[in-house]
Amino acid sequence: MSALLKIEDLAVVFDTRAGTVEALRGVSLSLGRGETLGIVGESGSGKSVTAQAVMGLIDVPGRIAGGSISWDGQALVQDGAQQHPSGIWGKEVTMVFQSPMTSLNPLMTIGAQLEEVIRKHLGLGRAAARDHAAEMLAAVGISGARRRLDQYPHEFSGGMRQRVMIAMAIACEPKLLIADEPTTALDVTIQAQILELLAGLQERLGLSIILITHDLGIVAGLCHRVAVMYAGQIVETGSVDDIFDRPAHPYTQGLIRSTPRLDEPEDRLTAIEGTPPGLLHPPEGCAFRTRCPIARDDCRAPQALRPFGAGFVACTQPGVDAWGDGK
């Protein structure tokens, strides 16, 4: 599989009054055509910042401090310098955000917001853009599409707004759709509908998808490959099956065992003790070692992703059952 998106050693920092926060510390990823990659991790691990960097959305106080991103052979970030290619963002690479309630302009009609992106990237006239917009609404399962074009976001429910966001994202036949926690703000039944919609669109349009989430259940259902992030770095990548059956990094193991299961009686929820390190002065070496039950002295040295099994892990003792209870 040829890589469409290639992220190499990406570093992003945020300049704050207290100092420089290192949000991404050398992230490398690649994504093939038609592939679905899940990026999981807790809040502040750098999942969303990675997505923003790919979309060219890193803005003051944040800045790209190093690394490269290339899309289909074209540089988006070259050796730490932001590039501004035209016709990629919004057309070939698009994004759906977390909060559908606030991600649409409240004072523009749904139609105007859809037509805007269609006219810019497909160069259609007013009438043709409107027809296309109606088609897109219908494609994401909104009935009475033509009538709804003239409505405002507040006349739509949260789930419907997320469908509109997806309609905007697929309006110009993208190759990659980045979905940043697309269902977090929605209730569970709507979540399932949105995920089904994404899966269906992927199949029909041959999309690549990057799905950012902290919900392992969603990853298991939708993704081919998973990258686990912790404290601004990727600590493990691999196929969905490998990650869920044989998690090699203690943090991945901890994440999976802290997911509540319906098929086993459990008195209380399992959690990983402790909190992630602050990224103002990130620790040398493995960032997880302060919470890791099997940390050793050599964990103080920087850990790079190394092949292990079919995937890659950044750990001194990959594959060891760190939590010792086989869960």
């Binding site: 979309m55 959305l57 963002w89 919004g90 994004m95 606030t102 991600s103 302009n105 992106v117 905007m168």
Partner: peptide
């Protein structure tokens, strides 16, 4: 700083 502006930027506006 509102999310809809980020959406517009992501649309390439």
């Amino acid at each position: 700083n509102k999310p809809y502006v980020q959406t517009a930027r992501a649309k390439g506006m």
